[in-house]
Write a protein that binds this DNA or RNA. Structure first.
Lengths: 142, 142
DNA sequence: CTGCTTGCAAAGTATTTGCACTCTT
DNA sequence: AAGAGTGCAAATACTTTGCAAGCAG
C-alpha cells in the first residue's frame, strides 16, 4: 500500500494537482480495503476512523485513483458502482452470489482465449472485459 | 411477436392483472425492437407512433415483461439500464464498441464450459452470467 | 361497480457541479 | 499570493412511489 500511495502522490504532482490531507486520507482508506467497495461504504469507513470528508471530494478522489490506474470502477447489477483496487492485482473475473452478495474473484486462461477469438472475429481492438457469473453459493442454498 | 404478445396477456391474466391498452402498446413497441433499448428510447418510440404513456407506466410494464420472461434488464457501463428481448433468443454475450456504443451479440460454447467449471469449482448453483467485451470496432479505428 | 391502473408530480438514489471559502505550493 | 481543492447545497439523471381519477373485468 505504501507503494500505491507513492504512485498516487506522484500522479497528483505529475498532473498538476495538490497533495491534500483529504486525498491522502481517502486513498489510504481505499487502499487498505480488499474487495469491492461502494462510494458510500468508503465514506462510512472514513467516518468511523474519524475522518470527515465530503461526498463530493470522495467521488472526485475516486476518479483520480482510477485515472492513476490504482482503482477500477465497476457496475455490478445493483444501481451503485463499486471500486476495486487494481495495482498488483492479476486480471480476474467475478463470481457473485445473488442471495448474499458475496463476490469471489477467479481467473480463467480459457476466457482470455475466448476473448481474443471474439475480438479477432469481429475485427475489434481489445480494450477490456467484464465477466460476471451469478449463482447461489453453498451457504445460501442450505 | 404475436406469440410473445399472447404470452404477455396470459401472464397478465395469470397474475391477476388487467390487460390494458397501455400495456399492450408498450409491449408491442418493445417486442418490435431488435437489440437493446433504454426506457427513454422506448418512450420516444411510442411517442413517435402517437402513443402517449406515462414514464411510470412504461417502467412498470417493463418490469412485468421481465417477470414474464420476455425481457431482461441489463446494465451496461452507462448509468442507464437497457432492456433486451429474451423470448426465442439464444443465450449470447455482448461485444461493445467503447467509442460508438455499438453492441454486437456473439455466442461462445467455450464460455459455457468455463462457466460450468467455475460454478463447480466454487460450489455455486448456476443462475446466469454476464459477459461483455469492450474494444474499438473497425470503423472507429479509422 | 370494484379495485387494479394510469399519469402526474413528488420522492428516492447515486453522482456531479457551482460557488464561496480554505489550504497547498 | 495564486489558484487548486474543499464542503455544502443545489442540480442532474434515472427510476420509483403516493394519490386522485379512469377503465377493465
Amino acid at each position: 500500500m505504501v507503494q500505491e500511495l507513492q504512485i498516487f502522490q506522484q500522479h497528483l504532482s505529475k498532473t498538476g494537482r495538490k497533495v491534500t490531507q483529504e486525498r491522502i486520507e481517502i486513498a489510504k482508506a481505499f487502499l487498505s480495503t480488499e474487495g469491492h467497495i461502494t462510494a458510500d461504504e468508503l465514506l462510512q469507513k472514513l467516518q468511523r476512523s474519524g475522518v470527515a470528508v465530503g461526498r463530493a471530494t470522495l467521488y472526485r478522489t475516486l476518479a483520480v485513483l482510477c485515472e492513476a490506474g490504482l482503482a477500477v470502477k465497476r457496475q455490478f447489477d445493483e444501481g451503485t458502482a463499486r471500486y476495486e483496487r487494481l495495482y498488483g492485482h492479476k486480471r480476474h473475473d467475478h463470481l457473485v452470489c445473488t442471495r448474499c452478495g458475496k463476490i469471489i474473484e477467479f481467473e480463467s486462461p480459457l476466457i482470455e482465449r475466448v476473448q481474443q477469438e471474439v475480438f479477432l472475429a469481429h475485427d475489434f481492438l481489445a480494450h477490456s472485459r467484464r465477466v460476471e457469473l451469478y449463482g447461489l453459493c453453498k451457504e445460501c442454498r442450505e
